[in-house]
């Protein structure tokens, strides 16, 4: 990385990921990201950027650098083992029609 690029990054406010609960009872969901000097200001900015139309009742922010993500290159070994275990779904089981409420 050149010194120029380092300087630019040094001056930039940190990046935050924003999660919003759209209404009581629902999960927080990723809404997007923004830059802010600290968590408090990130929440204030998130309010202006992501909830201008009553999209939320609660905001979470986390600095992007703290997010750990799975590797898309490992998708096969991560998720394929589940694909042949259809017996984990209720529809796998054939029951007589007389059986109710199950």
């Amino acid at each position: 990385m050149t010194n120029d690029k380092l300087n630019i990054i040094k001056n930039e406010w940190p990046l935050w990921e924003v999660f919003i609960r759209s209404k009581a009872g629902l999960d927080h969901k990723h809404a997007g990201s923004l830059h802010a000097p600290d968590a408090q200001m990130a929440i204030e900015n998130a309010r202006d950027v992501y909830t201008r139309r009553m999209e939320g009742v609660s905001i979470w922010v986390v600095e992007s650098k703290h997010i750990q993500a799975s590797d898309p290159g490992q998708s096969e070994s991560m998720y394929d083992p589940a694909s042949d275990k259809i017996y984990r779904h209720p529809t796998f089981y054939d029951l007589p029609d007389e059986v109710k409420y199950m």
Partner: peptide
């Protein structure tokens, strides 16, 4: 309200571009 939306739209888009490895300041 419209102009404020436009600021917001710019911010959504800058964030989307940043996921490709360019910084906001660049």
């Amino acid at each position: 309200a419209k102009v404020q939306d436009e600021a917001g739209h710019g911010l959504y888009l800058y964030s989307a571009a940043e996921t490709l490895g360019i910084t906001r300041d660049e």
